[in-house]
Amino acid sequence: MSLIAEFPPTSFVYADRIEDHDPPPAWLVALVKRARGLVLPLLLAAAWHWASSIDASMAYAFVPLDQVWERLLQLLSTGELAINAGSSLGRALTGLALGGLSGILLGSLMAGFPLVERLFGPLLQAFRQVPPLGWLPLVGLWLGSGEEAKQLLVAVAAFHPLLLNSYEGFAQAEKKHLEVGRVLMLSRWRSFRFILLPTALPSILTGVGQALAFAWISTIGVELLFGTGAGLGSLMHTAQMAGDMGVVLLCVISIGLMGYGLNLILSLVRARLLRWRVTG
């Protein structure tokens, strides 16, 4: 990057005259502009800290920030945060894989075979109305509160968005593209691989995004509600029972950061897979 491109020529001509009130460099302006976003969180943190100093009962809910910091160091050094975060992540991804793949499979079958759609469509539509965590008491009765129950609930949460989106994706395969496949005498497999799948891919990826969000929310939800085993939700559950706001706060932040990270990875994958699109 050349300097000339960054400064208008006039600042060279009059360089010695305007030296003492040179305009601040662009990066500094950008930094200050960005920093304005930090004002509100910092104010909130300050208010929080101030609230904690009023009296002991307030300090119970609004834990002093230095205590939160200590908790963080503690969770990190014992490896508790890593273990629980890893457990949640594994659960969410396994559920996404199990539920998502069955959703894609059934969705593509429903798009390809009207009979399958007529047989299962209305039933699945009815099941979809129950919020993922609404199944929890029933699944809890049947499977207890162990890993199978959690995994099933997360898988169900990931299932529906992918069922819906892959069905729509495969159903919108365009006649004009399929016709080209016929003229070129493509085999069934090639028609699927080169025409149907690419047509459905944007929709499927949208579904993966939704399913990922649902799987993550449900993972935290089932861990929180069952309160058993490892996981950020369980950690939060235990902390809530113990009145340990510091750990609860740290869990909330970790959950947000991890959800954000997962989303980011997915959007990178998406951009790569859909680079043939005009918008991509």
């Binding site: 004009k176 090639r190 025409i195 690419p198």
Partner: peptide, 25 residues
């Protein structure tokens, strides 16, 4: 061979891949 009014290239394949697909048999 048939050429349509709209080119009907597959948007998800490069030009080379589009032509290669016609040679898949």
């Amino acid at each position: 061979g048939l050429i349509f009014q709209d080119h009907r290239l597959f948007p998800w394949l490069t030009v080379e891949q589009n032509v290669l697909l016609a040679l898949s048999n």
